[in-house]
Simulated assay, not measured.
Amino acid sequence: MANREAPLGQGLLYGLYQNRIRRWLATQDRPRHVAMILDGNRRWAKQRELETAAHGHRAGAAKFQEFLTWCDDLGIQVATLYLLSTDNLTGRKSAELDELFTIIAELADDLSHFRNWRVQHVGSDEGLPERLIAALKAAESRTKDNTGLHVNLAVGYGGRREIADAMRSIVEQHDAEGGTLDALAELLTPELIGDHLYTGGQPDPDLVIRTSGEQRLSDFMLWQSAHSEFYFVEALGPDLREVDFLRALRDYARRQRRFGS
């Protein structure tokens, strides 16, 4: 569903409207896990005639931290951020990628020092520079005992790749245990595959939000989002406001979830 409501300003009425939605949400079901595709950073920079796309990516990174604070304040348990896809690694110019690597490494470090959040890298290390891999591992290590919001950083992430990696992990583990192919066929279930995904052990996303008006998944959490609710916002990523997020949660609370039935 795309958000078509009229934009709001930043005055008194804006604050009153936000508070009204918050009060209503306090008595409603809220998602445990929210996944975010913060799209439109490059378009945001281009519209403002900024010199490089990196300006948009930095604005997007700042918005991600703001978004996580909104999630945490509302008691959401898990948030997954789509930061860099496997397609990006082959489809972006090297100069832009270098800037992105730096911005993501800085974001991971910032988040690992902010509140009591637990940071986890979900994705493949393949194609990532050592400095970024080191930053992601350091953030994970620094926050592994934290008990607050669980923040997944989807970096070097592709949904198809994740499923293939899960299957490979299952086969390798089964082989190491001396299992046969016939036995593997008996053991192979959706639950087992889910346990071997990058997000194994976590709840699937209840709500997936995408900014910039685009209405597609772009290879993001293909397995986990089988029963997710989707919400699409017209605003470009860096322009996302808290009220847009609150509207998404309000829309989620009003839906009757059917889980494929």
Rank of each mutant, 00 (worst) to 15 (best):
P7Q: 05
L8K: 01
G9H: 03
L12T: 07
W24R: 15
A26E: 13
T27N: 15
T27K: 15
R30A: 10
R30W: 09
R32W: 11
R32P: 07
M36V: 10
N41F: 09
N41A: 07
R43E: 01
Q47W: 04
A59L: 10
F64Q: 08
F64W: 12
Q65F: 05
E66A: 12
D73Y: 01
L74V: 02
G75V: 08
Q77R: 14
A79F: 06
L81S: 15
Y82F: 14
S85A: 05
G91L: 11
G91F: 10
G91E: 13
S94M: 06
L100T: 02
E106Q: 14
E106I: 06
D109T: 15
D110C: 07
D110H: 09
L111M: 12
L111C: 11
F114P: 00
F114D: 12
Q120N: 14
G123Y: 02
G123L: 02
S124N: 09
D125K: 06
L128Q: 04
L128T: 04
E130K: 09
A134T: 13
L136F: 01
E140T: 11
R142Q: 10
K144D: 14
K144F: 03
N146H: 13
G148W: 03
G148R: 01
L149V: 07
V151Q: 11
N152C: 08
V155F: 04
G158W: 06
G158K: 13
R160H: 11
A166Q: 07
M167F: 15
M167N: 08
M167K: 06
I170V: 12
D175A: 13
E177A: 15
G178Q: 05
T180M: 10
A185G: 14
L188M: 12
T189L: 04
L192D: 01
L192P: 12
H196Q: 14
L197E: 02
T199L: 03
G200E: 02
G200T: 04
G200I: 00
G201S: 11
Q202M: 12
Q202F: 03
P203A: 07
P205T: 07
L207T: 08
D219W: 05
F220A: 05
F220M: 05
M221R: 11
L222M: 11
F230T: 07
Y231Q: 05
L236F: 10
L236R: 12
P238T: 00
D239I: 02
D244W: 00
D244E: 00
L246Q: 00
L246E: 02
L246M: 07
R247F: 11
R250Q: 12
A253F: 12
R254G: 11
R258P: 11
F259H: 10
